[in-house]
Design a protein around this nucleic acid. Structure first.
Length: 364
DNA sequence: GCCGTTACGGTTGAA
DNA sequence: TGTTCAACCGTAACG
C-alpha cells in the first residue's frame, strides 16, 4: 500500500519508506559529487540522509549506475526447460541415478555452471514432479517435447534487462563467450540479475528491449511510472531550454508515454540529445524541504503511486540551487573536475560535453 | 564533523 | 486469489 504522504527525515527531506529516491535526486547526488561537493554537503543540500548519499555514490562508483536495483521478485530459476530435459535424459539412460550424480553430470556436461546448477533437492523434486515414472511417461514426453518446446522463463526483472545483447553479455552472470567483446559500459553491473540503470539509459534513452517491452504484454505499468520519473525529469533536462524552468509539457503525466529519445539500433552512438550534460542539468533545482514543497499530493489528487511519482516535479520546480558554501552552482557552470573519474561515464561525459556546452551557450 | 556500516521497518514482485 | 519469501529501499544510529 502506497502512502499518500511521504515521511520527513531528520534533514527535512521527504521520502517514502521502502521506495527509492526519485531519479532526479539520485542523479543530482551524482552530479554534485562530480562537481567535487562532499557527500555531507550533498546530504544537507538535498536533504537526503548521508547514508543514502554514501550508498548511491558507492553504487555509482561501482556500477556506473545511479538507479536502484531491481526490487522484489525472485532469483532466476535454475530449473530451466533445458536443465529438466537433461535431467530427464540422464534418468532415462540410468534410472537408478542419484540426484547428486545428476547434479555432477550437469556440471560436467556444461549444462550448468556452479552458479546455476540446481540443488540436489531441486533435482529430486524435478524427478518426482516433472519426470515421475519415466517408463510410462517417456514416450509421451518425447512427443510433447516435439509438440511444444517450453519457452524459457522470463529473466528476472526482464523489465530491467540490458538495453543491448552486448551489454547483457557484459553484465550477465553467464560468461561472455570468447570472441564476444565485453564493452566497458556504464551499465556494466556485476550482479546476478542486473538492471539497466546507467545514467544514459535513464536519461530517456529507451533501449531496444524497452521498445519491445512497450508492446509486450509483460510491460509493467510500474515501469512507466519509473520511466516517467526518469523521462519526465531527465528528458526535460536533455531537451530543456529554460534554466530551472519547468518545461511543464515534459513533466505532464501524459508525456511519460511518449518516447523522448530512441536510439537507432544501427547507430553506434546515442543521439546527441540523449547525452548527459552533468553540470547544466536543471533537474533538481531546489532544496527538498518538507514544509515548502508538496511532493506527495493528497490522495484525492492522484493515485498513491502517482503521488510518489510526482515527487520529481516538486524537486524540479523552484529556485536555483546554491552551494552551501555560498558558491552558486549555476546551471551555466559547465566545469567538471577532471580528477573525478567515474566508471563508465567517460564516454558519455566526453560526448556530453558538446551538448553541455551547447546547452550552456543557449542558456547564457 | 565526516563517513562507512548496519539494523530496522517498509515495499515489491515472482513463485 | 492470497501468502510467502527474498530481493530491494532510505533512514537513523553507531563507531
Amino acid at each position: 500500500m502506497e502512502p499518500a504522504f511521504g515521511e520527513v527525515n531528520q534533514l527535512g527531506g521527504v521520502f517514502v519508506n521502502g521506495r527509492p529516491l526519485p531519479n532526479a535526486i539520485r542523479l543530482r547526488i551524482v552530479e554534485l559529487a562530480q562537481l567535487g561537493i562532499r557527500p555531507c554537503d550533498i546530504s544537507r543540500q538535498l536533504r537526503v540522509s548521508h547514508g543514502c548519499v554514501s550508498k548511491i555514490l558507492a553504487r555509482y562508483n561501482e556500477t556506473g549506475s545511479i538507479l536502484p536495483g531491481a526490487i522484489g521478485g525472485s532469483k532466476p530459476r535454475v530449473t530451466t526447460p533445458t536443465v529438466v530435459k537433461h535431467i530427464r535424459t540422464y534418468k532415462q539412460r540410468d534410472p537408478g541415478i542419484f540426484a547428486w550424480e545428476i547434479r555432477d553430470r550437469l556440471l560436467a556436461d556444461g549444462v550448468c555452471d556452479k552458479y546455476n546448477v540446481p540443488s540436489v533437492s531441486s533435482i529430486s523434486r524435478i524427478l518426482r514432479n516433472k519426470i515421475g515414472n519415466l517408463s510410462q511417461q517417456s514416450h509421451y514426453d518425447s512427443y510433447k517435447q516435439h509438440q511444444a518446446a517450453p519457452q524459457p522463463a522470463l529473466p528476472y526483472n526482464h523489465i530491467y534487462s540490458y538495453p543491448s545483447p552486448i551489454a547483457a553479455a557484459a553484465g550477465a552472470k553467464v560468461p561472455t563467450p570468447p570472441g564476444v567483446p565485453t564493452i566497458h559500459s556504464a551499465v556494466h553491473m556485476p550482479r546476478t540479475w542486473p538492471s539497466s540503470h546507467s545514467v544514459t539509459d535513464i536519461l530517456g534513452i529507451r533501449s531496444i528491449t524497452d521498445q519491445v517491452s512497450d508492446s509486450s504484454p509483460y510491460h509493467s505499468p510500474k515501469v512507466e511510472e519509473w520511466s516517467s520519473l526518469s523521462r519526465s525529469g531527465f528528458a526535460a533536462t536533455a531537451q530543456h531550454v529554460a534554466v530551472n524552468g519547468l518545461d511543464k509539457s515534459s513533466m505532464e503525466p501524459e508525456a511519460k508515454y511518449s518516447q523522448v529519445i530512441r536510439r537507432d539500433p544501427s547507430l553506434s552512438t546515442w543521439p546527441s540529445e540523449a547525452r548527459l550534460a552533468p553540470s547544466c542539468l536543471p533537474t533538481v533545482g531546489s532544496f527538498v524541504s518538507a514544509p515548502t514543497m508538496a511532493p506527495y499530493p493528497t490522495a484525492a489528487q492522484v493515485s498513491p503511486y502517482m503521488a510518489y511519482s510526482a515527487a520529481p516535479s516538486g524537486y524540479v520546480a523552484g529556485h536555483g540551487w546554491q552551494h552551501a558554501g555560498g558558491t552558486p552552482l549555476s546551471p551555466h557552470n559547465c566545469d567538471i573536475p577532471a580528477s573525478l573519474a567515474f566508471k563508465g561515464m567517460q564516454t558519455a561525459r566526453e560526448a556530453s560535453h558538446t551538448v553541455s556546452e551547447g546547452l550552456c551557450k543557449r542558456l547564457e
